[in-house]
Design a protein around this nucleic acid. Sequence first.
DNA 1: TATTGTTATACTCTATAACTATA
DNA 2: TATAGTTATAGAGTATAACAATA
Lengths: 148, 148
Amino acid sequence: MAPADGVLTSAGYLLLKAGHHIAVDFETALDALGLSGREFLVMSNVRAADGLSQQALSERLGLDPTLVVGLVDALEDRSYVRRAKDPADRRRNILSLTAAGIAVHDDAVAAARRAEHAFLAPLSAAQREELRAALRAVMAPRLPWLDA
Amino acid sequence: MAPADGVLTSAGYLLLKAGHHIAVDFETALDALGLSGREFLVMSNVRAADGLSQQALSERLGLDPTLVVGLVDALEDRSYVRRAKDPADRRRNILSLTAAGIAVHDDAVAAARRAEHAFLAPLSAAQREELRAALRAVMAPRLPWLDA
DNA sequence: TATTGTTATACTCTATAACTATA
DNA sequence: TATAGTTATAGAGTATAACAATA
């Protein structure tokens, strides 16, 4: 057997593929609500971390700040997200969800959970929890906000 | 606690993020060999499945056939991959690795394995294997060639 | 008439640099 | 002088459609 054998069934490659597949599933599930995956993540982060600035958000998302502008614009147009000047530093925009944003986000969370459950259906509840713990351990050094 | 809490620490989101992070790590590791991640996957699939056509390859990779053309072109230019007309159906290109291609691919596999090992370092050997088994179970319905 | 591979075009997405307003 | 946010531009990446060769 070739020394290269097993690459395509390695944990690393399967992880890469699984990540992409579930991303597509999330997009599909959120599409019914008129949200993109990124918009959902913007709302999730704004909701999870109070008083988030756009720069802090871009770091969390791993996206360029210039991309965040357009994302927040699109959500503000639909009145899901609010920009407010930080009184302590008027350069900063403090982001928050509106009541309408929270309502839509609740639905989006439910849709995402259904998609996740379907994706992980081949696993038992215990296996799903083990998977989550393993991924959390691996990602902890890379996602500082995960500790909180 | 808000009903939306936990989205960012869910198995699904961590899976999505982990997939992207390891993809970046793979790209970085392969860069030293002058290979892109996709070129590496082309070579890995050609090597794993004998007599693969470009169309079959595009299905395995989940990429449009028109993208495969350019990938194979670039690898053929470096004499890593060969195109040969299928005698049974002269529309088909049968792909194979050259000796040079196999040599480079061996190095690439080693580099990818090192990157994977570093990425999964927080996990024990048993946990890594459990992760691999879980991902394989989840992806089996989506990657038909995984059964082989 | 359908399929494999190829090419060309248009579209989307992203990264880079420059600008403003605040500090 | 440096930073947060914004805008505009250019580049890379992708999808769509049309074509040639073969079935």
